[in-house]
């Protein structure tokens, strides 16, 4: 399998008056061709900033550093803004959370679909138009040709997100970053859009980074999962491993929050993780999850925790041994 995206020690720091906010702290991951990586975590854990950092679309005051940041072997870290713009929308495209506001109200769908291709590829407006029609049909929009002349306000949220997906595909990118693409949509539409994304990803053999806080989505579409907490990846592995044998206490806690039909008793308490995410301003010592962890001991607050590898390649950021972690996972599953 060929690597499309490789990220090593990506950091995003945002200087604030009260100190530096370490929003993304040394995260490393990779995405292969035709692979879906889900980045999971709660609001504010740095998952959206991670995607913006990859695209080079961070707010101007945010500082991005990385030991390695390559797309298809090309180093993104050394590119200037113009070179980065050549890659955005061409080799790497992004789908955003808010389909209602992500399209420009003043221009037709056709215009906004075509412009990325006209910018990056040597095509004439007619060819771009043909491609737009082809992709609108691909994303399941009927009467595609007549839609081109419509404006965003004439389309529903689900349709707009389909348009956004088609827009991301215009130049046939190697990698798609989707930042909670279904959060703003009705539940029934969510499933359709997810299936669509998964199918298109398979068909065009793209890499897909899907950012979400919805573990139901992860279970359905992910190949691999990275769980983020407080700006770090706390666990990473194949979707089977993560769901069957979550090693990190945070992942175990997350999974306990999902009711399972037929298994979770009616009226039983749904799981929740007590406590609050620590502030990421200034230096953070020890494990970020220690204050909420049911298994924490004194070393957790003082020792910086590295990712350790369990058998099977699953990685987790915890001081507990593999045996102890597996024991906790079994107890969590039966609790």
């Amino acid at each position: 399998m060929s690597r499309i995206l490789e990220v090593e020690n990506l950091r995003v720091d945002i200087p604030l008056e009260s100190g530096t906010l370490h929003a993304v702290r040394d995260i490393s991951f990779h995405v292969d061709k035709g692979e879906t990586l889900c980045i999971v975590g709660e609001s504010g854990c740095g998952k959206s900033l991670t995607s913006l950092a990859l695209m080079g679309l961070l707010p101007t005051k945010a500082i991005r550093t990385a030991n390695r940041l390559t797309l298809g072997g090309r180093d993104l870290g050394t590119l200037n803004e113009t070179q980065m713009a050549d890659i955005r929308g061409s080799r790497m495209a992004m789908i955003f959370q808010e389909p209602m506001t992500s399209l420009n109200p003043a221009y037709t769908i056709g215009n906004q679909l075509a412009e990325a291709m006209l910018r990056h590829r040597k095509v004439n407006p007619n060819e771009a138009r043909e491609r737009a029609i082809y992709l609108l049909e691909k994303v399941g929009i009927t009467a595609a040709a007549s839609r081109l002349g419509q404006y965003p306000h004439q389309l529903s949220g689900g349709l707009r997100q389909r348009v956004m997906i088609a827009m991301a595909l215009m130049c046939g990118p190697d990698l798609i970053l989707a930042d909670e693409p279904t959060t703003a949509l009705d539940v029934t539409i969510q499933a359709q859009i997810l299936h669509l994304l998964a199918n298109l990803q398979k068909e065009f053999e793209m890499g897909l980074v899907l950012i979400t806080h919805d573990l139901g989505i992860v279970a359905r579409v992910a190949h691999r999962v990275a769980v983020m907490y407080a700006g770090q990846i706390v666990e990473e592995g194949t979707v089977e491993d993560i769901f069957r044998r979550p090693m990190h206490p945070y992942t175990q806690g997350l999974l306990r929050c999902i009711p399972i039909p037929g298994k979770t008793a009616r009226g039983a308490h749904l799981g929740s993780i007590p406590g609050m995410v620590p502030s990421l301003i200034g230096d953070l010592k020890g494990c970020a999850f220690a204050n909420r962890c049911p298994h924490a001991f004194s070393d957790c607050n003082t020792t910086d925790v590295a990712l350790r590898e369990a058998s099977g390649g699953q990685r987790y950021r915890c001081l507990l041994s593999q045996e102890a972690a597996e024991q906790n996972a079994r107890e969590a599953a039966t609790a």
């Binding site: 695209m55 713009a85 929308g89 495209a93 412009e115 910018r119």
Partner: peptide, 12 residues
């Protein structure tokens, strides 16, 4: 948001 979309397309 649509300005971010435009930038994400790599437009000049």
């Amino acid at each position: 948001d649509y300005i971010r979309t435009a930038r994400a397309k790599g437009l000049f």
